[in-house]
Design a protein around this nucleic acid. Structure first.
Lengths: 265, 265
DNA sequence: TATAAAGGTGAATCCGCAC
DNA sequence: AGTGCGGATTCACCTTTAT
């Protein structure tokens, strides 16, 4: 595994995620944020090392695809548990296509789910099919290594902020498990497109609620590294993994742009 | 299996759920609504017929408990698929304790998830521990038998109603996957308590969105039968299953009370 | 009499302290 | 070091008092 980019607070690895996770020291990471790919076995996505093969054998084999996806999720989730500190926590985001496999994998791997968060998108696009409810949320899972862990939660910070514009946050009251945050607007994607780019407001809540300044944050499916930008902007250190160098190049541009902007006197 | 109560539109069975589901004719049910018990293996709950045994062997065995729960959920979910009509659908509700096992079991059993719904409870009780976000929602899964099914969805009814008091429903716009509905208040529990009684407003959306007048609705964990009351009140037929006769007695009282009220001239 | 303000109650979980 | 007790925490809802 080769380091693709390295500054003291921002490191990127170009690698298969399962390989890269083997290289991270055990018990070294404070918080993991993971936005794994959806529908692996339908999209023909393949992982290296023969661990994951593309399957798309028709409708009769739907459950085979589901279980192949599960095997992959189980593998990276187990590896993440090894590199997480005793009191560290993991976040996983997804829609119903992947989140049930991931949640179940967490629970069968010894993690304890602390919260599941419903991220409500008030600007979700309308549904053209008229055959179901308009999908307008994603789920975030937040889990700790075990029931014995003493995980970190910045309770007062979460409670006191009004989280500008969240219609569900009652000022001065506790932050709840349903968050109203718009999907990223085009102007936030200044450096190009990423299929599932998450809004900065969402990652800010994740990072600020569950880590402190100086903590080490890992994103195993980093993409354009919104997680890393938010981490660094808030004084955390970041490691990102991706198997696509285009996304990592985009990550580097975004990182440098942010650093340049913060050096303005 | 013995019928515990039977009217033309409201039937109750006192039985183990796995036994009872074997007795329902194949392809006979339009909609299933299931609110399965949480944390089966922690509470020492046991199912008859040796299919489910209590396990509580300490923390080292957490994953054993998770997988025992999964086995149970998988069994009733598979049986439900047999009795569902070709174009029928199933709803499953739960918190993160059970919903990931149920969602994964749906996906591995050939169902296709149509929507996952976030039921936001604006009156959720506070979090006293201050160690995590205030749990203030539950999840509902809605699935059809396969990707080939032509399931029923009363789109225009859902869109046109304003769903009195839901701060997230925009009048005249499509109904979304996040619903704001308060938890039942004490006055709704006129006939006693049930641990996880669901609000009538919630069940109304479920029944009205996915079934028509005359359809057959089944609740395999019926408890005090809020599902049945809403079904019958809207002209549907209902079958409820529970292994607790106290809950079934309560169901009968609520049914008769409702019938009496509707007969007033 | 109706509405508003003020006050009391209860729920679940974590933590520290005494032993 | 393991056990167990008690205090602290918050907010919806109900009751009481005031306007």
């Amino acid at each position: 595994m080769k380091t693709y980019f390295a500054e003291s607070d921002f490191q990127l690895y170009l690698a298969d995620v399962l390989d890269a996770l083997d290289e991270i020291p055990a018990e070294s990471v404070d918080v993991i944020f993971a936005d794994p790919p959806y529908n692996l076995s339908n999209g023909g996505i393949t992982c290296r090392s023969g661990r994951m093969v593309s399957v798309n054998k028709g409708e009769w084999d739907v459950s085979r695809g589901v279980e192949t996806d599960y095997d992959f999720h189980k593998q990276w989730i187990v590896k993440c548990r090894k590199i997480l500190k005793e009191n560290g926590t993991i976040w996983i985001s997804g829609t119903y296509h992947s989140i049930y496999a991931c949640g179940f994998a967490l629970q069968t791997s010894g993690y304890q789910i602390i919260n599941d968060i419903c991220w409500y998108k008030p600007n979700a696009p309308p549904n053209l099919s008229t055959k179901y409810f308009t999908a307008s949320h994603e789920t975030l899972l937040w889990a700790r290594k075990s029931t014995k862990s003493r995980h970190k939660f910045n309770y007062n910070l979460m409670k006191s902020r009004d989280w500008n514009g969240d219609q569900l946050k009652i000022p001065g009251k506790q932050m709840r498990s349903v968050w109203s945050i718009p999907s990223p607007k085009p102007e936030e994607k200044t450096q190009g497109k990423h299929p599932t780019q998450k809004p900065i407001k969402l990652l800010s809540r994740v990072i600020l609620s569950s880590s402190d300044v100086g903590d080490l944050i890992l994103d195993p499916f980093t993409g354009s590294s919104t997680t890393g930008l938010v981490a660094v902007a808030n004084g955390r250190r970041f490691i990102g993994i991706d198997n696509n160098s285009d996304f990592l190049d985009l990550s580097i541009r975004r990182y440098k742009e942010m650093k340049a902007a913060s050096e303005v006197p």
